[in-house]
Nucleic acid binder design. Sequence first.
DNA 1: GTAGGGTTACTC
DNA 2: GAGTAACCCTAC
Length: 280
Amino acid sequence: MGAPKQKWTSEEEDALRAGVRKHGAGKWRTIQKDPEFSPVLSSRSNIDLKDKWRNLSFSASGLGSSKVRVPRITGPTSSPSPSAQALLLPAPNKVTEATLPADAEKKPQDGKTPPKYGVMIMEALSELNEPNGSDMAAILRFIEERHVVQPTFRRFLTSKLRRLADSNKIVKIDKSYRLPDSFATRTPAPKQKDPSKPSKVSKTIGLFTASSPALEAAMAAAVKVADAEAKAHDAHDQMMEAERILKMAEDTESLLTIAVEIYDRCLRGEITTIVAQRDV
DNA sequence: GTAGGGTTACTC
DNA sequence: GAGTAACCCTAC
């Protein structure tokens, strides 16, 4: 890029947050033209606002700060009934932290360290094994089905795929990606003795010649293991989704309680101050 | 005008 | 090398 990067100042970020509070996210042009914020945001376009807000939103999910690189893969410690102050803040990097860590709440499926993204991608390409390559959506879907990824992953995937392609670890075909031929030899097209088992596993072990009963038995066992694993993944995903929805319901109830309380105070003529929590 | 994917520069 | 922030491009 020609122009040097113009880092956002804290004043600009504050103005953006205030603008979103005032006009709502998505009204970037309105915010940018608002006389209250335009002095601060004069050097930013509406697109800049949108991009920055996107980054802030991602930051809220736990990966925003470059100083905190530790993925948020541990379980949440936040209470289901967060404070009113935090709840009433629309700025993304505060709201999510305090109230809706639905994404951050996701844990590794077995409590172990999840595989690196590069490994996930290689696994996805290996399993998808499409001759013309798999597009980003397919890769993303596959990985999300099998692994817990950060909300940033979608954007990060682009860079990661390109880097893998640059280093010839994968091959880019138009807008799709596939494993290089050296990997593809895993899935030759030899005539299989038993075509009635079109499983993914039978593909991945296709380099072996299923010529012995022992190998055939091993293949059959591997197929069953793979199927069981797939079902376990599905069950886990369903459970995670159910937990997420339950958490959302609890958070919504907390919000409602707070709203009712504020409403009651207003009815009684009390002045209610909403304090923004500034830490982290 | 906005959303979202893609690219590049930067930090660690 | 991995990951993120800022910027660019394009479709709607």
